[in-house]
Design a protein around this nucleic acid. Structure first.
Lengths: 349, 349
DNA sequence: CGGCAGCCTGACAGCGTTGTCAAGAAACAC
DNA sequence: GTGTTTCTTGACAACGCTGTCAGGCTGCCG
């Protein structure tokens, strides 16, 4: 229990009332924009609210009033009946939500922009204000040092859904490195020797593991890695396009491209299409993630399936253990597996 | 305020206590799995809980205890900095969440399976148990009669994010019909005469409007609709594949296909690729929605952009009006627009 | 059989807010 | 100036639960 017990004291309506020299009811009136408050009084209360950074406690409001300050977004989730149709975050939400409901918990979703330097404060406010029992952090946020450090200071239970290790933090991850090696060996076993790799965004640790796996797989297959065949992308489709343009105009073309994720692989497919390079006859392409797009491009993409929903379920279970104050068994791993489709074949010769 | 005031009375801990003949504290112990309760007592309490369908009030627990029964899922939302990267529901969440935060509200997300007959009760429990001020309903749930009827009975403020009209219900929608007509006229203006249309799932009213728009556009362009060129899909990529296989094996091929959504259009692209039919030289393909996949296939897809995020923002604003008891100005419309890319061109002859 | 420790149980005081109601102050009517 | 309405304000009781603490009951030991 005491893990959530940080020293931060949040101002209550009483604090505001005594500072403004009025009763709590008057503060309540101001906060709720009710009529019949003298402008001068209102002003004083607003100033006190500002000074104390007061924000009303949602639970108390819900309990006392007949408003809940809560509304629902109800939507059909096709992943319930169509296999792997949703994207990463929808799956993670689904897994977390399922476990949360089982445990009588509610889930607060909090999308944010990890480029924004204000994101640390944003999350601090979330933790301190919403009285959260714990949180789940996904990549790339799970690798942003200042965020992780701030959460350590506030002693918030955190599970990082990420393969990157941070001292003192628990995480669930996938066997990205091992399965990437497997994919690389698979390509080599088809007869490919000039196998290119497209790196992901350096902030995404998962993708670093994928690169390591590529290197492992190459050496396990007795192949030499050519520096020019390992190129930097940033996870986006567009970066896949950029890299592919460079790769597919080299004198000595690669016969296979293994991209750090499906989006970049789709970019390669698009460039190949534009240049009239036939996939898989002239070029094999493999991705990673098994997102819906991998089945919807032509040819369909050989990739690696990430059990994202299960990953989130596991992460949520661990978070509950942490909240209950139980010891965790260290890092937990969920295994991914190859999905062979039409974009890979033996090289033509 | 009284719109949320339905007659349903939720059992409290006091009800359970008096039914089980114990004090509320003992009920609390049982609910929280605390030790030192005699098995017989525990049993009796559990029975009372079951009988009364008691579920603890989350707000009260949060207020009284030091647990919040709440955890956050914090994730990076690329739609904050990458244009149109997320899918429909992620965008809707983003728009709703933005407005919710501004108004001091929390958002409960509730994915469900609209095929499930239990979904009506599921949503009823949500409304009654979570003391929700209102809700946002997205397609296809927004068109499920029993759900809409149940919500009317419980007098819950509802905004339907859907073009389909239901008497007595407010909705925001898009100009699906008009913009579909525009797309059809665009294809006709390129010189196409045999323009096929792939219908969406009949439960999705938006897609019905799209079909109407197609019919409008054909007649506005002075073209006759051939029944065999209008085929039924179900919104999925796979159904696009199925329909395309039928369409592209006809003796008298269409020169253009307008699909009710991008997923189905991507299916057409895949089949065309497999059959060696060149897009757009031999076949023009157009979709609807401007989902990420439309930019990531080859050739890139001509489609219609849906401002989903803004749609959700608007819907949320309307919901707040409804919650405050204000009159709504009727149906609100957000306009979509054509996005011309590489998959459409004049027919070759 | 007395004493003591441990197990059960319940009374009661919060938690931070809003709703109700009453009272005092101000404004207005005559 | 008096009576009446309208504003403005605050005291206080909920809301439904958990934490604290005290007390009764049980069983065990000497």
């Amino acid at each position: 229990m005491d893990a959530t017990n940080n020293t931060y004291h949040r101002a209550t309506i009483d604090d505001v009332a005594s500072r403004a020299g009025v009763s709590i009811k008057t503060v309540s009136r101001v906060v709720n924009n009710e009529p019949n408050v003298r402008p001068a009084t209102r002003e004083a209360v607003l100033q006190a609210i500002k000074d104390l950074k007061y924000r009303p406690n949602a639970s108390a409001r819900r309990l006392a009033g007949n408003r809940s300050f809560l509304f629902a977004l109800v939507y059909d989730d096709p992943s319930a009946y169509i296999n792997a149709t949703a994207n990463y975050i929808t799956n993670v939400q689904g897994g977390a939500l399922k476990k949360a409901r089982e445990a009588g918990y509610d889930l607060l979703i909090h999308p944010c922009d990890y480029h924004d330097p204000g994101v640390v404060d944003e999350i601090r406010v979330l933790v301190e204000h919403s009285r959260i029992d714990g949180l789940l952090l996904t990549p790339p946020l799970a690798e942003v040092k200042p965020i992780v450090r701030m959460l350590r200071d506030t002693e918030t239970p955190v599970i990082r859904v990420s393969p990157g290790k941070v001292r003192g933090y628990d995480a669930v991850g996938t066997n990205d490195r091992e399965v990437s090696a497997e994919m690389t060996r698979y390509l080599a076993s088809l007869g490919h020797e000039r196998i290119a790799f497209i790196r992901g965004h350096p902030h995404h640790r998962a993708l670093a593991g994928r690169e390591q796996g590529y290197l492992d797989g190459m050496s396990q297959s007795g192949l030499r890695v050519q520096k020019s065949l390992v190129q930097q992308g940033d996870n986006s489709f567009e970066s896949g396009v950029e890299v592919a343009k460079r790769l597919l105009r080299m004198k000595n073309l690669p016969t296979a491209v293994f991209a750090g994720n499906d989006d970049m692989a789709a970019g390669v497919l698009q460039v190949a299409g534009g240049l009239g390079i036939k996939v898989p006859e002239q070029l094999s392409v493999a991705g990673f993630d098994n997102v819906p797009i991998s089945r919807q491009v032509w040819p369909t993409l050989t990739t690696i399936h990430q059990p994202t929903f299960e990953l989130a379920e596991k992460a949520t279970e661990l978070l509950f253990q942490l909240i209950r104050g139980e010891k965790l068994t260290g890092r937990t791993q969920i295994d991914s597996s190859l999905v062979i489709r039409d974009s890979t074949a033996p090289p033509r010769e």
